[in-house]
Simulated scan of single mutants.
Amino acid sequence: MAPNKSKASSGGGCSCSLTKVLTIIGALIGLFFPIYYILERNLEKFYIFELDHLKDVSSRGIEKYGNDTGKIVEYIVAELHEKYPRHVNPKWNVPEEWFFNNAGGAMGGMYIIHSSITEYLIIFGTAVGTEGHSGRHTADDYFYILSGEQWAYVPGNFTREVYPAGAMNHMHRGTVKQYKMPNDCFALEYARGWIPPMLFFGFADGVFSTLDVQTLYRTVVVTGREMIANLLIGKI
């Protein structure tokens, strides 16, 4: 009879532990869901950048400098830094601020202008071309083409979407596309919504495919630096 009592006792212990775990999970959901709901309803209040201004400054940069992508980037970053000096990383011409980004099978160079919990603004592009999966994200993504073209495809269509320099490709939150950036395509990419969940997509290729520890380290350091800086000055 003793072994049976032991088994019963063990089963009771497991049941009790599971109940405690489920209770804790339920309490955490009950605690954080109202916070998430309130923040979600008020996300607009946390955004720094204006869509019309990003479109306008990109268009003016293209009109002023044509095919000189470096000058376009300098023009955009200089104006953004003047308008938002506490929120913009102005070091576009510092080599250490640029690093590769591998995500969804696509690869390109990236420079982080701004990163926070609710927004990121980057320059992303490649001189040799790339193609991949856009990801399905928790933020709206606005892709302002500065040079070259971006192509996109949605299943069921029989023609590609073409976004030339000066155009903007808006990826709505939760949607997904196949995209391609042929040779010499660079863009100002702006995401607004919940940024942290997007980081898993951004890091996955580096962790499970390229194993490029140095690039992962630089990405984490710069992203973290910008996010923490914006939290400290009261912007999420």
Rank of each mutant, 00 (worst) to 15 (best):
A2I: 14
P3D: 12
S9T: 14
S10A: 15
G12I: 04
S15G: 13
T19P: 00
V21G: 04
L22V: 08
L22F: 10
I25F: 14
A27Y: 06
L28R: 06
I29L: 11
L31I: 10
P34I: 07
I35R: 04
Y37I: 03
I38M: 10
R41H: 10
L43E: 05
K45G: 00
F46I: 02
L54N: 05
S58R: 05
S59T: 12
R60D: 09
I62T: 03
I62R: 09
K64D: 02
K64F: 01
Y65Q: 04
Y65T: 04
G66T: 04
G66F: 01
N67I: 04
N67Q: 13
D68I: 03
T69N: 12
T69E: 13
K71F: 02
E74W: 01
V77K: 11
A78R: 14
Y84D: 02
Y84T: 05
V88Y: 01
W92R: 04
W92F: 13
V94W: 05
E96K: 13
E97L: 02
W98H: 03
F99D: 06
A103K: 04
G109K: 11
G109M: 13
I113Q: 06
I113T: 07
H114F: 01
S115K: 10
T118N: 08
Y120Q: 11
Y120P: 00
L121E: 03
G125K: 06
G125T: 03
T126G: 07
V128Y: 08
G129R: 11
G129P: 02
T130W: 02
E131N: 12
G132N: 09
H133S: 11
H137C: 03
T138K: 12
T138C: 09
A139V: 07
D140E: 11
Y142V: 03
I145F: 00
I145N: 09
S147A: 12
E149R: 15
E149P: 00
Q150S: 10
Q150R: 15
W151Y: 15
A152T: 13
Y153H: 14
G156D: 11
F158Y: 14
Y163S: 13
A165L: 08
T175G: 02
T175M: 12
V176D: 03
K177A: 10
N183E: 15
D184T: 07
C185A: 15
F186T: 13
L188H: 06
E189P: 02
E189L: 09
G193A: 06
I195S: 05
I195D: 02
I195N: 06
P196A: 08
P197K: 07
M198S: 08
L199T: 09
F200H: 11
F201E: 03
F201K: 05
A204Y: 08
D205L: 04
G206R: 03
V207C: 10
F208W: 08
S209I: 14
L216V: 01
L216M: 14
Y217C: 06
T219Y: 06
V221Q: 02
T223Y: 01
T223V: 09
E226A: 12
M227E: 01
M227A: 12
A229L: 10
G234H: 07
K235N: 11
